[in-house]
Design a protein around this nucleic acid. Sequence first.
DNA 1: TTTATAGTTAACCAACTAGTTTATTAACCA
DNA 2: TGGTTAATAAACTAGTTGGTTAACTATAAA
Lengths: 120, 120
Amino acid sequence: MDHLSIVFSALSDPTRRAMLAHLSNGEANVGDLAKPFLKHMSLPAVTKHLKVLEAAGLITKTADAQFRSCRLNSEPLKEANDWIEDFKAMWEESFDRLDEYLKEIQAPKKSKGKKHGKRK
Amino acid sequence: MDHLSIVFSALSDPTRRAMLAHLSNGEANVGDLAKPFLKHMSLPAVTKHLKVLEAAGLITKTADAQFRSCRLNSEPLKEANDWIEDFKAMWEESFDRLDEYLKEIQAPKKSKGKKHGKRK
DNA sequence: TTTATAGTTAACCAACTAGTTTATTAACCA
DNA sequence: TGGTTAATAAACTAGTTGGTTAACTATAAA
């Protein structure tokens, strides 16, 4: 799978997004991250979610004694954001071209071009 | 599943992202959208991908004779973008708090505090 | 009325996901 | 040394995903 797909896939789970949100307040170890979820799922399940985030490059773990401290990594998020931004740009551009086209066919010297009112 | 998860999940496939990119140039029917992929996958596979995009609200299909014309829908993309933006905001905020904290402990009256150079 | 075109549905399959429980590793504490 | 804490690994399972082929529906065109 390509990396961007892996990132979007990692983001497509509310538990994992909540973990990222938690980490946006600063580093945390696995136990701290797990706490809000241990009523709903086991610790190994948490470990797995963290592995998914790690595989996507969204977090990195560092060992400190028996603790694993996790911290955020911005690049993959930027990657996802860039895709969306680029996409919006393409889209706007195509709207712009449409506008130009409409102006062209609607207002040439003595136009009688029919409207088609597509946009929204 | 919550809606945001459905959106991220829909975006986590290169075929589907390519289809969205195609649609950013304007409406297209299923056959047109399928064309670039028919060497790699069958038409029913394309139909399924479009169903995923439709379920996420990213596209809407309209019937015109035997053709199904697809067009983009911006709200879900905005939803995804908003999550990322909000997340970045939280994160920056926590960096700001960290900066404040560091200033506080490092620069009281006559400081000689050492740099920490974390923030890239 | 038959035939071609556009697309969906159904049934199936292999691989993956998200969870489980049990067992294991590793470091600290008494 | 033995027990506790933090976390991972292994083995299993139910459900989902992404693909297939074959059959079907609906409209257009001859």
